[in-house]
Structures are given as C-alpha cells and as structure tokens.
Amino acid sequence: MAAAAATQGKGAGLGGGAEGREGPGVAVAVSAGPAWAVSVAFPGSVTQEGCFRFTCEFLKHVLYQRQQLPLPYEQLAFFYRRQPPRAPGQANGDEEVVRKVHVKDQDCSQKCQQVLSDLEGVFKHLETMFTLTLVPCVLILLGGTSVSPKEFYEINLQGVSVRGAEDSLQTAACIRKLFHSLFLADVFSELQTGPTMGVTVMVQGHRNCGVDWFKPKLNYKVPTRGRKLTVNVSCSHHTSTGLSDYQEMNSAWDDYIWFQAPVTVKGFRYFSS
C-alpha cells in the first residue's frame, strides 16, 4: 500500500493571477484561474462500475462541500424519502407557529425534491454511460455557462486500467482511498462560500456509444477559465487494458467527444432569501 501512496500537488505549477509566483523563464502552462490537482494511484485494476462510483461519490462530495446542498446527498435523500412533505391540507391541527414555518418548508422541500430527482437522473444515466463506453474524463461545472463556468472539477480517468470484477480491487476500498487523498490535499476548506449555482455534468465518451440522454457537444473544449480542481485517478500496475491502450486499439483519440447532461442541477439552501 505504501508504494502506491497518494501524491498531492497543491497549486501544482499553475500559478494564476491569484498566486502570481511564476518565476522568470520558467515554462508553466498559464491558466487563467487558479488550479489545483490531486493524484490518486490505486495499486491494481478497477472495474468500469468502480469508475462510475468514483465519479458519483465525487459529485456528491463537491455538491456538499461547495454548499450547493445543505446536507450531504445521502442524508438529504434519506430525510426526504422517509418523510414525504405533508400536503397543506393535511396540517392536522398544529399550532400556529408550526404552520408558519411550514409554508417556507414547503417551498424548500419542493426545491429539494427537484434537486434530488435531477441528481438521481444524472446518476442513473451516468451509470448507463459507463457501461456503454470508456470514459476518459468527467467534468463537473459550477455556475456560469458550460464554456465559462465559475469553477469546475475534472476527474481524469485516463490512467485507469479497467478489468473485470474478479481481477480488480474492491470499489469500496478505492473510494476510501480517493477520499483520503482528497482530505489530505484539503482543497475545499479554503474556498469561500459562494452563491447557489447551476451544476452541469460533462462526460467524455466514444462518438458511437449510442447514449441518448446525454447530448453530444462536438465543439466543446475544457474551459480555461474559472477555478479548477483536477483529480487524476490512475492505476499503478499497467498490466491490463487501460484507456490509453484502448485508444490505440479502437480508434483515434478524436473519436472521444464530450457529452453534456441535459439537466442543470440547481443548488439550494435552507432559509435562503
């Protein structure tokens, strides 16, 4: 395990205007916004389903950490499934005080239901997407438009080697490792609280994978502006079919295009004005 320790690069070379540390003559890729990178290396192969789970858990994490959800996704889903919001007529003789709160609750719970069902849709279709095609990269965009988001998160799966379930590491262990690295890198604690924003998911996949929920964006390229966090996921043993091998076997790199989820998940807060 020690050999595959996570390496974290914080403020890795990409000195934007905020840091302004680039020395003279040092060739660095100049990014318009500040950028961070976290690398995670697994000591073996993973499954396609595992890749989906990483993406999914990371998305939930980002949503909560960036205050787009008032509670972690699982808790929110748990509360709202167990206690379906009461209809206004059903207010069975509660005191006046309770009922006043209730009106605001109603509004909030509607927003929450919407977010939850949107997210459920995204997760469901992401899962399908991962079974249909290899996914080299996933982007989570917050705020702004898809081409110029306020901040965005990239999950780079290009270094992953994919195998069947019996030859792979346990997905749960991998997720623990991923989050361990994220916590060590401590990328979320310094960020300021932002407003609630729209969240869009972009997935890279093969041109002919036949997915129909996600909409192809042939012209899309990864934004250069906005705050960026990259999570590089890789497998240290390159023994089996990795994505890079696939590319050579299957087709040219340009057959992997971007797909955009057709829903924008609107972040929400309790008691926001």
């Binding site: 705020g143 702004g144 438009t145 898809s146 729209g198 869009t200 909409k215 192809p216 964006k217 042939l218 012209n219 057709p262 924008t264």
Partner: peptide, 8 residues
C-alpha cells in the same frame, strides 16, 4: 448544433 440550455 443548437444549445438547448437557457440563459445563465
């Protein structure tokens, strides 16, 4: 291609 999302 037309973009389907509304204004942000």
């Amino acid at each position: 291609h037309l973009n389907e999302e509304g204004p942000s």
